[in-house]
Nucleic acid binder design. Structure first.
Length: 489
RNA sequence: GGUCGGUUGGCCGAGUGGUUAGGCAUCGGUCUGCAAAACCGGGUACGGCGGUUCGAAUCCGCCACCGACCUCCA
């Protein structure tokens, strides 16, 4: 039951049983960010999606090597008009920094943000600039095989030639002839023989800062090359899972397939997994569209579209409420709902810890675990798994209210369910409370005194305490046999 | 223009032939000194038109609208 995981493979357009090449090992490569500006909500989607997949694979017992790269060179700002400027070089010029300062700054910021989202660090996080030599070697190999050509110190992949012998478009469903017929005029740019050829190596223009010597010129590697090189280097010539955003299917992943197929004689990846986009007002959220909200802005509420701050775990829960291949639309209403829903889930877990066991159970808790596994095995259907967890929430609250009963064994089973799915797999954790032990002590003192006031029916005193605390963001919940309190984040 | 995907109740979002998805919001009730929390119950749905079927949100056709990609993007 546990191990029958089905994943949607973009390559075959079907859900396929996941069977790694060499169990118990599983390899996964995911395209990471180009580190030239702040991390935004869109970046959280693949991060959370593949973190969840990583966690689930480990839970199923696989030894997973999870590789996620950092693109720190070679991502051109605008290839089409041939300004040919590297995103990072450009930012460095704008901010008057060394390119590596730009890289470091935004990489640090990315890591901080990922940590707050409680995504596990990848097993290896390689950087393009650390693999210049291998990228040159792969370029050479492709040249030797005759699928690339050099012009003025730059080397391009010969898509036309490749497409005569291989299926260029196998991943994206694109047909070269149709692309030719429908592409916009690409004139005057170029050194390229064919309009769809892409750079393996780019000669640096005068003044370009990030460049390395090579057999062809002082220059830098093309964007698509780094992922082929680093995935092969750390996962082998054939590996299990390659992940990334759907917007990378073409050309990026299509080009990776072409490069590796030529270089090693066979395709590199067995399961291509792609997450869908986060949208805002129905449109993709992207840096280039200028409609993005950074994760820091979400965490602090400092963006004009935000009516309040949303915690990292709210963002994570928000992502999990949708299946990863669906678009997910941003709105304050949706995030607020996620925030409240998550609090309900987390509160139930605390309630669970205090349940008093009975001799017999009056409800059946056996189906929920299976429901969660079935949902996860069905291409990571996290929203359905969450629905099962909310079934458990209802039961926990009923038992807490004394309306149903659970045995100690069943309570333990529920605790295991929460521990496994909420924490281990979904990566949700209790928010860092705004309080600390001293605050907790003060609150206990104050609320004990309020209980005593209530016992004396001094409602003015008890209400005053409750209202003042409420103003401070501390909610008091009276119970039959005491009280509970909660600090809103 | 081409390729692919989508259109589910106030909002988000599951669901591929018949059975309550779930969360949030809303209404009524229970509990409570009053609230809050929790629980119970209710209402609101499958873009339009046609077809297949005993039966369709789910299959087929046509139409409308939206989005992604078509070498900047997670």
């Amino acid at each position: 039951m546990k191990s029958a995981l089905y994943l949607y493979n973009t390559l075959t357009r079907k859900k396929e049983l996941f069977e790694p090449l060499s169990p118990p090992f599983a390899g996964m490569y995911v395209c990471g960010p180009t580190v030239y500006s702040e991390t935004h909500l869109g970046h959280a989607r693949p991060a959370v999606t593949f973190d969840t997949l990583y966690r689930y694979l480990m839970h199923l017992g696989y030894s997973v090597r999870y590789v996620r790269n950092i693109t720190d060179v070679g991502h051109l700002e605008n290839e089409e008009d041939d300004t040919g400027e590297d995103k990072i070089s450009r930012k460095a010029r704008q901010e008057n920094l060394e390119p590596m300062e730009v890289v470091q700054k935004y990489m640090n910021s990315y890591h901080r943000t990922m940590e707050r989202l409680n995504t596990l660090p990848p097993s290896i996080e390689p950087r393009a600039t650390g693999h210049i030599l291998e990228q040159q070697q792969m370029t050479e190999r492709i040249l030797e095989k005759g699928y690339a050509y050099e012009v003025n110190g730059s080397v391009y992949f010969d898509v036309e030639k490749y497409a005569r012998e291989h299926h260029y478009g196998i991943l994206s469903g694109r047909v070269l002839e149709e692309m030719r017929a429908n592409s916009r005029a690409l004139e005057g740019q170029d050194e390229k023989r064919g309009p769809f050829d892409f750079a393996l190596w780019k000669k640096a223009s005068p003044g370009h800062i990030m460049k390395w010597p090579s057999p062809w010129s002082e220059g830098f590697p093309g964007w698509h090359l780094e992922c082929s090189v680093m995935s092969t280097r750390y996962l082998g010539e054939t590996f299990d899972i390659h992940g990334g955003g759907m917007d990378l299917i073409f050309p990026h992943h299509e080009c990776e397939i072409a490069q590796s197929t030529v270089s090693q004689g066979h395709p590199p990846v067995r399961y291509w997994v792609h997450n869908n986009m986060v949208t805002i007002n129905g449109q993709k959220m992207a840096r280039s569209l200028g409609n993005f909200i950074t994760l820091d802005e979400l965490f602090t509420g400092s963006h004009k579209l935000l009516v309040q701050a949303y915690s990292p775990m709210t963002i994570r829960f928000f992502m999990l409420q949708a299946q990863y291949r669906s678009t997910l639309d941003f709105s304050n209403e949706a995030l607020l709902a996620a925030s409240l829903g998550m609090q309900k889930l987390m509160n139930a877990e605390r309630t669970l810890a205090n349940l008093v066991p009975s001799e017999t159970s009056s409800v059946d808790v056996s189906g929920m675990e299976k429901g969660c596994y079935d949902a996860m095995n069905d291409d990571l259907n996290t929203p359905v798994a969450l629905a099962h967890l909310f079934d458990a929430v209802r039961i926990i609250n009923l038992v807490s209210d004394g309306k149903e009963r659970l045995t100690a064994d069943d309570i333990t089973a529920l605790q295991r369910l929460f521990s496994t799915f909420v924490h281990d797999i979904f990566g949700l954790k209790a928010e860092e409370s705004a309080g600390n032990e001293k605050l907790a002590g003060v609150l206990t003192l104050l609320l004990d005194m309020r209980q005593e006031a209530k016992a004396r029916k001094e409602w003015e005193v008890s209400d005053r305490i409750r209202n003042r605390l409420s103003e401070l963001g501390i909610t008091v919940k009276d119970r039959k046999d005491g009280y509970d309190w909660e600090i809103s984040t």
